[in-house]
Write a protein that binds this DNA or RNA. Structure first.
Length: 249
RNA sequence: UACCGUUGCCG
C-alpha cells in the first residue's frame, strides 16, 4: 500500500492523471493517503469534478480528509465555479476541524476572490489567526481582478507593515492591476519599490513591468526593463515583442 | 504522499 501511494504521484508525472486514476482503482486497498493524493492530483490537473466525486466516495467509505484534502477539493470548486459545494465544504471544515488553518483558509480566500465575492474573501481572511504571503496575495488578486485597484493597493501597503514581505508574485499581481487599469503613476511608484528591493531583476516581476510599459505605450522603458533582466523566459520575450508590435512606428 | 496566490501570447 505504501509503495502504491508513492507510485500514484509518479504515474501522474510520467503517464498523466488518467493513468494514476487507473492505478488507484486497481489497488487492492486504499487509505487516507491514497485518497488525498488522488484528489489533489485531480484538482491540480483540472479534473475538478473527478476530485469532487472522489471526495464523496472517500467520505462515504469512512476515510478522514485532512486540511490538505479539503484545500484540494476547494480548489476544485474554484475551478468549477461551484460556490454551493465550496460553501458546503467551508461549513463541513468548521464542523470537523473547528477552525480554518493556513491551507483551508487560503484555499477559501482564493475561491471567494476568484468568484468575485470580495466581502466573503475578506471575512475569511479576517477570521484567520495568521496570515502568510499567500493569504495576502489571494485577497489582493481578487481585488485587482474585480476592479478594486485602490483597495488592492491599500492591502499591499498594509502588508508591507505586517511582519512579512510581499514576494515576487504579490508585486506582479499589483503591477498586473496597474496594467489593466492603466494606472501608470501607481505603476511607476511600484517600479521604484521593486528597484529598491531588487525585485525588478526577478523574472516574474520584470515580465509584469515590461507588459505594463508596453501597454501604456512606453516602449523605451519596456525595452530597458527587458535588457536589464538577468534571466529571461518565454514570457519576457513574448511580452517585449508584443510591446514592440503594438507600438510599431 | 499531497495544499493555496502571480506575469505574456494564443485558444
Amino acid at each position: 500500500l505504501f509503495c502504491c501511494n508513492s507510485m500514484l504521484y509518479g504515474y501522474s508525472v510520467l503517464y498523466g492523471v488518467e493513468a494514476a486514476v487507473n492505478l488507484f482503482y486497481q489497488m487492492p486497498e486504499h487509505d487516507d493517503v491514497s485518497w488525498s493524493t488522488m484528489i489533489s492530483l485531480s484538482s491540480q490537473h483540472g479534473y475538478g469534478s473527478k476530485a469532487l466525486n472522489m471526495f464523496v466516495e472517500m467520505w462515504n467509505q469512512g476515510f478522514m480528509p485532512n486540511s490538505m484534502t479539503y484545500a484540494s477539493v476547494i480548489r476544485a470548486c474554484t475551478g468549477l465555479y461551484d460556490l454551493d459545494w465550496g460553501c458546503h465544504l467551508y461549513a463541513r471544515i468548521l464542523r470537523m476541524q473547528s477552525s480554518l488553518d493556513a491551507y483551508t483558509g487560503n484555499a477559501l480566500i482564493d475561491m471567494y476572490a476568484k468568484l468575485g465575492l470580495l466581502d466573503s474573501a475578506r471575512r475569511v481572511f479576517d477570521s484567520l489567526t495568521e496570515h502568510n504571503v499567500v493569504s495576502w496575495t489571494s485577497l489582493i488578486s481578487g481585488n485587482v481582478q474585480f476592479g478594486c485597484i485602490e483597495q488592492a493597493v491599500a492591502l499591499f501597503n498594509q502588508m508591507k507593515k505586517a511582519p512579512l514581505f510581499p514576494d515576487a508574485i504579490t508585486v506582479s499581481t499589483v503591477l498586473g492591476g496597474c496594467t489593466s487599469y492603466k494606472e501608470i503613476t501607481l505603476g511607476m511608484q511600484l517600479h521604484g519599490y521593486t528597484v529598491k528591493t531588487g525585485a525588478d531583476s526577478l523574472t516574474t516581476v520584470g515580465n509584469a513591468l515590461i507588459t505594463m510599459y508596453g501597454k501604456v505605450g512606453d516602449v523605451c522603458s519596456a525595452e530597458t526593463q527587458f535588457d536589464l533582466m538577468p534571466i529571461k523566459d518565454i514570457i519576457s520575450w513574448t511580452a517585449v515583442i508584443t510591446a514592440l508590435s503594438q507600438n510599431s512606428d
